[in-house]
């Protein structure tokens, strides 16, 4: 277990999938104001699988929303794949999400009226692009979805639905995949399947992944865990295990 402060410092953006500098975000105003982020400086190296952890209200979800361009920060700058997000208009943000970012959510990941195949290729069809059939086949094979491609989401198990979501996130070879509690709704076996899949895509395909979770088991699949508390960085763990994560969390919460 090594708790370093250097690795949390921003490095050259060229090697980083996502960087954040001086990030601040406040909800509400006056007495009810909640400072969700109080100055965050973070870099997520390309090809790394990072887990963001922290107690409830630590700001981890807000951080991810801001990094993904779903929410805007009050101060600070964010880059995704070398592109500065600050000040981008809705159209540019939409295109960025479509082309450079992948998403896997806890639930309600898929459009219920479309088949698994249509769901996976949706970002490409939205962009009016052409599906890379070879890559698609490889992803489907890796994720074990070949037989389920023509099924509607409600005909798939929870684990299969999440794997479809992972396939969709990976299809565009985005600069980064954001995963928000991707195993929150799954039993532990399906959960470990999905997490294993994420780790493989990071190790074997060099995919950068940022995952928000409160589950130490899920976090142990990551290359690095970043801890948040009260809207500030509270340390990080490289090559985490369930034990080191639990210990670090206990320290932060204590």
């Amino acid at each position: 277990m090594t708790t370093t402060s250097e690795s949390t410092q921003p490095r050259s953006a060229l090697h980083d999938a996502v960087t954040a500098r001086g990030l601040r975000k406040t909800y509400g105003r006056g007495e009810t104001a909640v400072e969700a982020l109080r100055g965050i400086d973070l870099a997520f190296p390309a090809g790394e699988f990072t887990a963001i952890m922290g107690p409830s209200g630590s700001g981890k979800s807000t951080l991810m929303h801001c990094l993904a361009g779903l929410d805007t920060a009050d101060a600070g700058t964010i880059t995704v794949g070398g592109t500065e997000l600050t000040g981008l208009a809705d159209k540019a943000l939409t295109e960025l999400r479509r082309d450079r970012v992948g998403f896997v959510f806890q639930a309600f990941n898929l459009v219920p009226t479309l088949t698994a195949r249509a769901n996976i290729t949706l970002p490409v069809t939205l962009a009016g692009g052409k599906v890379d059939e070879e890559w698609f086949g490889q992803l489907a094979a890796t994720l074990g979805l070949q037989d389920r491609l023509d099924h509607k989401p409600h005909e798939l198990s929870g684990g299969q639905q999440q794997r479809v979501a992972v396939a969709r996130a990976l299809l565009t070879r985005p600069a980064v995949v954001f995963a928000d509690e991707p195993t929150g709704n799954l039993d532990s076996r399906s959960g470990s399947e999905v997490l294993g899949m994420l780790r493989r895509s990071s190790r074997e395909m060099g995919q950068s992944i940022i995952m928000v979770t409160h589950d130490p088991v899920a976090a142990s699949y990551a290359d690095r865990v970043v801890l948040l508390a009260d809207g500030r960085l509270a340390g990080s763990i490289t090559d985490p295990t369930v034990e080191t994560v639990l210990a670090a969390l206990a320290k932060v919460e204590g």
């Binding site: 939409t94 295109e95 479509r98 998403f103 309600f108 990941n109 949706l122 939205l126």
Partner: peptide
């Protein structure tokens, strides 16, 4: 709403 939001997340533009 949620379905539309999902579409927006994965890159559907307002026009679409």
């Amino acid at each position: 709403t949620r379905e539309l939001a999902l579409l927006r997340c994965i890159g559907a533009s307002r026009r679409q």
